[in-house]
Design a protein around this nucleic acid. Sequence first.
DNA 1: ATGAAAGCGCTAACAG
DNA 2: CTGTTAGCGCTTTCAT
Lengths: 349, 349
Amino acid sequence: MSTSRPTARDVAQRAGVSRSAVSMVMNGTAAGNVSAAAQERIREAARALDYRPDPLGVSLRQQRTGIIGIVTDEIASSPFAGKLISGVNSAAADRGYLSIISDIGQTAFAGPGTVREEHAIRQLIRRRVDALILATNGLRTLRVPKPLLTLPAAMANCRDAEGLLAAFIADEREGAQRATEHLTALGHRRILFIGGGDDEDAIPARLAGYHAAMTTAGLESLPPVSAGWEINDGFTAAQVVLTGTERPTAVFAANDRVATGVLLAAGGLGLRVPQDLSILGFDDQPHLAEATVPGLSTMGLPHFDMGRQAAEHVLNLLDGQESTTNGAMIHCHLTLRESTGPAPAGFNC
Amino acid sequence: MSTSRPTARDVAQRAGVSRSAVSMVMNGTAAGNVSAAAQERIREAARALDYRPDPLGVSLRQQRTGIIGIVTDEIASSPFAGKLISGVNSAAADRGYLSIISDIGQTAFAGPGTVREEHAIRQLIRRRVDALILATNGLRTLRVPKPLLTLPAAMANCRDAEGLLAAFIADEREGAQRATEHLTALGHRRILFIGGGDDEDAIPARLAGYHAAMTTAGLESLPPVSAGWEINDGFTAAQVVLTGTERPTAVFAANDRVATGVLLAAGGLGLRVPQDLSILGFDDQPHLAEATVPGLSTMGLPHFDMGRQAAEHVLNLLDGQESTTNGAMIHCHLTLRESTGPAPAGFNC
DNA sequence: ATGAAAGCGCTAACAG
DNA sequence: CTGTTAGCGCTTTCAT
């Protein structure tokens, strides 16, 4: 009695009422069912004993745990997973929910045999999570694992081909377009897109935005350089494309790491940034974009909001509110630092 | 019956036995209590119905949830939290446990008023986690919040001053010593330590290792340059210390980001790495150390193992095994890439 | 307005 | 060897 936590029975005893009365007061169902006097006594007793309903009892009774499951690829090494998860947690905490994360490793959601993710999902369902959120590190289109359709669910930073599940993704096309417009507005005419691979959906979207902005500005798109996602990829590509007189005056990199590689290469090639060359990144990667010299101008992805909105969506479903939305395209945010500036004179074609 | 999952009662009915018999078979307690024939029928029925004991019922009955709580600071932006958490999850999964993460933001564990963390811990305890792991992003010594002492717990990448809790931390001193020895073995005599602030415990430990190695090699330590933790911090510091004829031939950076800043600055100053200057980092930060040009030689911190061993420790406590250890100092791992090489000739003092 | 009783799914002690 | 029973802590009818 002294060591273990108080139960509803203890409170009831102390207040001289039945356990049901306690339950009602704790759940706000006491309206016309418990006398005001009793309510006050119950509240007082609960306070005195520091009583909190045991979530285990509640869960068993209500068949809901107040836990949201998150299934994600490579949380381990991603600089962004944390932001997305924070978004989920933030929305969850606001409504008294907790989250459980299941990390299934980097090769996840890849092949047709989505064994690992189905296992992870089943595991979470077995644990009776109330809802599930599927999140990926980069924008992806994937086949939604069947078990996911058996409970409230949403996708964050990914979507399924069939549109069965609400997807909360960044509007990468629009983001890339706005980013490119930033460069054209600075007078740049030769703007080169560098980086990325074929494994994700992000590149086509970003390229589409790039092309749209170039067309709008009456400029000719340069053939994009597919170069990978890492610093050294940007570095290597830059060695090639930044030489010669026809070199671009601005580089739009597929992400901040590639942009950093270009920045590194520019130094070695004697190009000043941004006076001789403007560099624009993508992602606003923590500890990177704001810390390079000069700091990277970059189009940030709304990881936090993707997580938060996905969580809000499933929580709404849980509250019985019919899906008010079927997903969302969330705006990207442009952060200007020092790596972009006016096009150098004498380069206007 | 068709839509909801099968219960022990369903299995018992199908096998023509009592519910308790089913329970025993599922828990391996059937030894001398259930006839072999019945056991087989039960197993068969369970398989047919795809029966899995409901964790909720088990939890309520046994007063344990099979969930480990992780309380951590700034998972959101840390490149390492994920690795540590993966370590915890890996050990947890091996024994059928799950983990719940509670992120309390970057200012955590700071002041004397540890309100936020106590709240997070209480929240997890309320949810009846079986054990708790306290993890920080960088090595820290902190006051262990009282509620933590009420259940099996361990600390990962941090420790408390009083030694009340088992702490699993990296042997940063030994790591720094070995790292410095790598440089002295290459013939470097002027080795400069750059980076870090005063807010964590890591710097004193790393400096101690540096000094030890220098002394052993019969060299004079250079006054360390306290410069911060980010790329631009390393860049700025390098601008000052890499000029002049008395410049160091090797830099040992407080982390990989600072090392990257030095690398960037070296390029601008016309210093080739590693021919003119060796640069050694700390952390082996994903997406950074292996991706710079040249790749960073770096002393990696065992984040995964810190998480994994902390989890194994609390799981042992849960299994009733008395604490076999009171924590551990885990070895760091040196990864050699291209940023370190022999000391340039003509610089031997 | 109140309390008694049933039961969520499970396990452990005990009687047959 | 087997089945019955009692409860883990809670909510929700249903009588009173």
